[in-house]
Write a protein that binds this DNA or RNA. Structure first.
Lengths: 143, 143
DNA sequence: TCGCAATTTGCAACCACTGTAGATTGGCAA
DNA sequence: TTGCCAATCTACAGTGGTTGCAAATTGCGA
């Protein structure tokens, strides 16, 4: 995702308006590596701008995703997670608490389906490592 | 997933009962490579057993997944997809129509996160290739 | 500064899925 | 073979995540 300033220009260039609500969401996402859900972002936004609606958060996230500024991830954690890092990377997912961490995986770009793409026109592969984060593994150990 | 006959024994062995509804679902999944959703399976089941409930389909799918006979896949297509193939393989997903195809990917097992597992205890990686299947790519071409 | 299209908000609706309860039934034990 | 009872089935309500809609508001180019 580009900086809040650059996004402001990008939105205007598309005929989209730049509202205080959107600027707040830009700032909340800028440099955010927590892979927040819409609800989590809404909670953070509400703390700074009481009265902002969840609907507006969804709307802006969808706009950003459509512009390619944001990756929407479906990792089986219940809600979609939003990732402002749109570079080449992959994900570690804790199946207990839903924590998500970015990771680089060398060799991932070179992966191809054995036997060819089966007629599909394919994007780059996405690698998901599921498991238990240290906190959850520790908690399970103790119990 | 094992054969319907073996599943019958496995269910009884766990103190679970084998009902006509469950046997039907076993048969619908046996050798099924379509990665159906619960709704799709329900529609197929209802055709052969009018009156069967969606709740029962979910219940049985959950039981099978818990027993490790079925993989539940969250691929961002709206609903969970169920895969009776529990061997080592990966997936091609059409982002237009939601079609899913099994693929083998040589080298996938060897993938690891650069910089180590970050404290996570990890399962085997899962590789997802998103793209457009031939039908959807053709349809987009024509329009 | 104006005007209008884009946006925001609140709320209803929708989809996928799960909880619950009462009626039913598989399957073991006698 | 029968009887019992826990497991199951169905119907329906409820939940969580997300989108549709309409009325009121507002950004921003002319």
């Amino acid at each position: 995702m580009r900086s809040p300033t650059e996004l402001t220009a990008a939105f205007r260039g598309r005929g989209l308006k730049v509202t205080p609500q959107r600027q707040l969401i830009f700032r909340l996402l800028d440099g955010n590596t927590a892979h927040p859900s819409a609800e989590i972002l809404f909670a953070a936004a509400e703390a700074q701008m009481p009265g902002i609606s969840l609907r507006t958060v969804y709307q802006t996230l969808n706009d950003l995703a459509e512009m390619g500024e944001l990756n929407q991830l479906d990792l089986g954690t219940g809600a979609s997670r939003f990732d402002p890092n749109v570079g080449d990377h992959h994900h570690l997912v804790c199946v207990d608490c839903g924590a998500v961490r970015d990771v680089h995986v060398s060799g991932a770009r070179q992966l191809t389906p054995d036997g060819g793409p089966q007629g599909f026109v394919l994007d780059a592969p996405h690698v998901i490592f599921r498991g238990h984060c240290s906190e959850c593994a520790d908690a399970a150990q103790r119990s």
